[in-house]
């Protein structure tokens, strides 16, 4: 029975074998959990909103669009809302998701502020934080203006985190 193998060598062998097994097994497990296929870039498509002249001045106008998204072998169209604010000099294309916890922000005409219902965040018409917990101003979609039939038309597409 006695193999004249020292206890230390036996334990090291045991731990070594199990450790090797754990590492070999663990690498794909951890990779699967933490670094999934999502690093793959999705296709960023442009969505047409409206001719700029149709957008009222100084009045945030919501546009509902969908962007393609995929995962787990499923392709979906994920809805999003873009608030377009046209002042005399600038154009904003706000993503209506709050920069605090991602809740849907909406424009309140009576109080002339963007309000987030979850924790009371407030943004001015220009997207700046004027109250509540949000840490950053409203994010904007990337945009381009395309000349169509003599009109300037606004297109948006999502940024990587939208």
């Amino acid at each position: 029975m006695a193999n004249n193998i020292s206890r230390r060598r036996f334990m090291i062998g045991l731990i070594g074998v199990n450790g090797l097994m754990g590492t070999l097994f663990g690498i794909p497990v951890v990779t699967y959990i933490v670094a999934p296929w999502g690093l793959h870039q999705p296709e960023f498509v442009w969505r047409r909103l409206a001719p700029i002249s149709d957008i009222p001045l100084n009045d945030p106008t919501p546009f509902h669009v969908t962007f393609p998204e995929s995962g787990s072998g499923i392709n979906i169209e994920r809805p999003a809302t873009c608030y377009v604010v046209r002042t005399g000099t600038t154009l904003f294309t706000f993503n209506n998701l709050c920069t605090h916890m991602g809740c849907p922000v909406r424009w309140d005409t009576l109080d002339q502020v963007f309000k987030c219902p979850c924790h009371g965040g407030l943004y001015s018409m220009l997207g700046q934080v004027i109250g509540g917990p949000p840490p950053y101003a409203l994010r904007q979609f990337a945009r381009k203006i395309v000349r169509e039939h003599g009109q300037d038309v606004l297109y948006i597409r999502p940024n990587i985190l939208d």
Binding site: V113, S124, L126, I130, G131
Partner: peptide, 9 residues
């Protein structure tokens, strides 16, 4: 109502 670029309240 606060101005457009109002203070941080």
């Amino acid at each position: 109502i606060p101005p457009l670029s109002g203070p941080n309240i």
